[in-house]
């Protein structure tokens, strides 16, 4: 848990605590003593389980990167809408004109967080799915071969690396 030292470990635990309390209050919206005590018990159990799972660290809770990730999120939504349109047309055409292909994509992302973000972005965009990740190579299945030609993922790769690792865009 304490990858960033004991201080950061406590900080991330505190962040998780605040997030859980806010989530409970927003979900229930009732201020009765019984419900509040139930909420306190749930938050305590969740914190204990998270500590036991050893998942509270810099990687699972990148709070400091939120502004960058939100910018990336908006760009990704645009990509998703464009890709959606292509797959919807493929679904509705009278004749199937799909041209599936398997390609290997090399990524410049180094950290696990960046790789996960990149692979999940590819999967989230309809028309392309990540099959496996080995080292810095991703195996991608695409509905149309021209969607996955060399360089098609370059833009997304660059933006993911910039958002998750802080590399110059």
């Amino acid at each position: 848990m304490n990858k960033g030292g004991a201080f950061f470990g406590v900080g991330y635990l505190l962040g998780l605590f605040v997030a859980l309390v806010a989530f409970w209050l927003a979900m229930s919206g009732l201020m009765k003593p019984l419900l509040l005590s139930l909420g306190a018990v749930s938050v305590a159990i969740t914190l204990f389980l998270a500590m036991r799972l050893d998942v509270v660290d810099k990687e699972s809770a990148p709070y400091l990167r939120w502004p960058v990730f939100i910018g990336y999120w908006f760009w990704l939504m645009g990509e998703i809408i464009k890709a959606n349109w292509r797959v919807i047309r493929a679904c509705l055409r009278a004749d199937l004109d799909i041209n599936p292909a398997l390609v290997k994509v090399k990524t410049r992302c180094k950290s696990d967080l960046a790789k996960t973000t990149f692979a999940n972005s590819i999967t989230l965009t309809p028309g392309t799915v990540t099959l496996s990740v080995e080292g810095d190579k991703l195996l991608v299945h695409a509905l149309y071969e021209q969607d996955a030609e060399p360089g098609a993922f370059d833009d997304m790769d660059r933006r993911t690396a910039a958002a998750a690792e802080g590399a110059p865009a």
């Binding site: 809408i81 959606n84 797959v87 919807i88 679904c91 799909i98 309809p126 799915v129 299945h141 509905l143």
Partner: peptide, 14 residues
Amino acid sequence: FYTRMHAASVTDTS
């Protein structure tokens, strides 16, 4: 199967 996956992700996203 692999092509069906793409169609399913239209439902999940948009």
